[in-house]
């Protein structure tokens, strides 16, 4: 079935992901002298906001290029977030989320936008349009990958799914 179960269900429960929120505010900030973040900076920021699973330089470069293509001003906001985190010496997701910075709506939206890119594997204008970067390496699969499949990839031979009961019940 084509447009059936999956997509309609997705659209029915999901909210807009704020990839591109607060662009105007970001633009305003850029007037204050921040310059756009470079790929290495985005790589470091990603590790600080997301954690070690975002430590992939090649992917960071690809996300950087995708933001450049879809919404270059995001790279200004990212520079602003990176600068603020550096000032406050925040270098882990735990530290960031516990900080006042994470309550700042603009900075938080930037963190969510960056996280969304890594988790969904793309930078998007909307649900249909954007720049794909990774599928298998999108971070959304990781939290379930000890049991679930990353769709289209094999995780075992025939009937592996019938042999997971013990593992699942163990927790």
């Amino acid at each position: 079935m084509g447009e059936g179960i999956g997509r309609r269900a997705v659209l029915s429960v999901t909210l807009a992901v704020p990839f591109l929120a607060s662009t105007r505010m970001a633009f305003a900030q850029s007037q204050t002298g921040d310059s756009a973040i470079d790929a290495d900076g985005l790589h470091r920021l990603s590790i600080a906001v997301i954690g070690p699973r975002a430590d992939d330089r090649l992917l960071a470069q690809a996300y950087h290029a995708a933001f450049m293509e879809i919404e270059p001003s995001f790279l200004l906001r990212a520079a602003s977030l990176a600068a603020a985190m550096k000032t406050q010496n925040l270098s882990t997701p735990e530290a960031f989320s516990a900080s006042a910075l994470a309550q700042d709506p603009v900075q938080r939206a930037t963190a969510v936008g960056l996280t969304a890119a890594w988790y969904l594997g793309h930078v998007e204008h909307d649900v249909d349009h954007g720049q794909p970067v990774a599928f298998e390496k999108a971070l959304m699969w990781g939290p379930t990958s000890d049991i679930m499949v990353t769709p289209s990839y094999a995780r075992g031979g025939p009937d592996y799914w019938a042999r997971q009961t013990a593992q699942i019940e163990k927790g």
């Binding site: 179960i5 429960v13 999901t14 909210l15 954690g51 939206a109 963190a111 969510v112 996280t115 990781g142």
Partner: peptide, 29 residues
């Protein structure tokens, strides 16, 4: 009852609510 891996709608739902790490992974799971 569908058996599709639901990570896409789940991740979009949580990101839409603004959930970040370190909570995001646990909530996706």
């Amino acid at each position: 009852v569908g058996n599709e891996a639901p990570n896409v709608p789940v991740a979009r739902y949580l990101l839409g609510k603004g959930v970040l790490q370190p909570q995001l992974d646990e909530q996706i799971r």
